[in-house]
Design a protein around this nucleic acid. Structure first.
Lengths: 330, 330
DNA sequence: TCCCATATGTCAATCGTGCGTCATAAATTT
DNA sequence: AAATTTATGACGCACGATTGACATATGGGA
């Protein structure tokens, strides 16, 4: 049986009250007693039962972190950063991978409530606004509108779309396609798309959109992309995520389409992983670390003070990382 | 304020005891009352406070999942599978990224104890055996020996080393190098190494080892590998992880070393990610899904019944995925 | 009619800790 | 010597739900 506060008191030869005082550094305490208690705690390997403490109206220091999947490097890196920053502030992360499953997301939301988490960082958004509003807990959303009371953190998706398109144009491409991973209004991808469309219009070029659904198996994506590449004359492709861009590079190679000579490709996300292991890929890098930091900071602000006034939308700058896959070829 | 059991009772017009009985399906209950209570729960959006329930000696249904990092695709995929399987069994995952930091791992362990988790899946092992034994909770270890009472789940690292080496040999390589990500006895990498060394001896070939520390920044790794590739005559490389193998491929390309004509490369791990996005890489695939399943199954067995007899070591089979990077060239 | 299974309510203890109140005693200041 | 400050103990309530004991009521079957 795990030792309790009373066991520590007995071991240290003091009253339970004193032990509690030592733990919470509350009231008058002599160094001598403190030491006695600390030693007893160490000897018994005592850890205050945070369940009991939480029940007493205190915080649980648990934060629900809800994303669709951590096996995607982008979310993996983001979640890792979030977890790190939460840890530094003394909070624990309950990981929730909704796998784009509405039902799972709903069950998770209820679980989190039942577990009395202090707040939620939500990056998986298959549920309606209502369900999130019903939660009644501090929530910060990553990259999607949930409700007017839930602040959003995102990077500048629109500018990303603009820059990506301009980059392809400037490196010589004219027939520029958009490979979008989905097509839902209110989704970040959509603003990247808007950036693309408006820029194409300004450039007086015809827009071409292909939806490469993120739910498809990657082999299916590959097939689909191969099909497109082999039938259409394309000079530049803006993929709304890096992984799709990788498949494009792969398929282009198989078809003997040279990158960047015949085809220029630009991705989106710019994870550390992509930068390290695919330094050839031009991409729009989201500030993963800053986003994680802001998400945590805003959430903890709300957790500490429910009334704290937050903006509705925080947009962080993106950065074009220019590499060989989009370089001008002479 | 979140509704309590008493509020539900009032709303349903029954006693608190009855509500509790309905929730726990305990004692005699009429359908009529059950329905009244369920409706009241729904109306108030009531979630039983699991903190309070846990305090009552019940399980917390929280499991600590301790790995070094989820941004590494291998761990990302493994953790995601684990989280999924835990969820299916009604358990919640507390994610702990120790970042190979001893102190963080220790703090995490204490946090998990304080939070009364029902058990721990440990895949980060920077601490001594003692600290893990002291925990006094069901623990299952991934891939490393912690103590005789803590079962280990791993894949067949030794056989992986053997197969990898044989594959390189059979495809024609004679000067076969090992690029190991670390060199600690008791670590899985070490058995891969043993497999390599023994196979090389059987083949009467000279072994060559290089340590490409996993702690190094990938740019440093790249530099180091470039250096090695450009100074030594190598025909085959067995990398103890796929990411290192990717760097090898990358650097070989830069140096004009053709793969597989001049150099054959084989990696290790075989994540879905690698299979999808680097189908050219031959690799030893660990059964990520089966490992996750077994880890969870064993842990829950221990959680449910402390006394359940488990083996000390569970070794799951690996699989050679043969691709172009190691193919015989004629 | 009596009994028993079914259905619900009342009451109180319990889980481990936090914390306020009161009491007491020693140490320190005035 | 009196008044404070410092240090500790004892006690009890609270947190929200669980659970057992006990009481009571209804209905159906023997």
């Amino acid at each position: 049986m795990r030792p309790k506060l009373n066991d520590v008191a007995r071991e240290a030869g003091v009253s339970p009250t004193t032990v509690s005082r030592v733990i919470n550094n509350h009231g008058y305490l002599s160094e001598k007693t403190k030491n006695k208690v600390f030693q007893a705690m160490k000897k018994l390997n005592y850890q205050p039962n945070s369940i009991a403490r939480s029940l007493h109206g205190k915080q649980t220091n648990l934060i629900g972190v809800l994303f669709s999947s951590v096996s995607n490097p982008f979310f993996g890196e983001l979640v890792e950063k979030i977890e790190n920053k939460l840890f530094k502030s003394g909070y624990k992360t309950i990981l929730c991978n909704s796998a784009d499953n509405k039902e799972k997301e709903r069950v998770y939301l209820n679980m989190l409530i039942a577990n009395q988490v202090d707040g939620i960082i939500a990056g998986a958004h298959n549920l309606g606004i209502k369900e999130y509003e019903k939660v009644g807990l501090p929530i910060i959303s990553f990259d999607r509108y949930l409700s007017s009371t839930i602040p959003i953190v995102s990077s500048d998706n629109y500018l990303g779309g603009v820059l990506a398109t301009q980059e392809l144009y400037q490196s010589g491409a004219r027939k520029i396609y958009l490979f979008a991973s989905s097509h839902t209004p209110n989704s970040p991808t959509d603003k990247r798309r808007t950036g693309y469309l408006e820029t194409m219009e300004k450039l007086q070029l015809e827009a071409h959109e292909k939806v490469i659904a993120s739910t498809m198996a990657s082999s299916v994506k590959a097939l689909m992309i191969k099909q497109i590449l082999s039938t259409e004359q394309i000079e530049g492709i803006f993929c709304t995520d890096d992984l799709t861009a990788l498949i494009v590079l792969q398929q282009a190679k198989e078809l003997g389409i040279r990158v960047p000579q015949d085809l220029k490709v630009i991705g989106y996300d710019g994870t550390q992983f992509i930068q390290n292991y695919h330094p050839e890929l031009t991409t729009i890098a989201q500030p993963i670390n800053d986003m994680a930091e802001l998400l945590v900071e805003l959430l903890l602000k709300r957790v500490t003070d429910e009334q704290s006034e937050l903006k509705e939308h925080y947009v962080l700058p993106i950065k074009l990382i220019r590499n060989q896959s989009s370089s001008q070829f002479m």
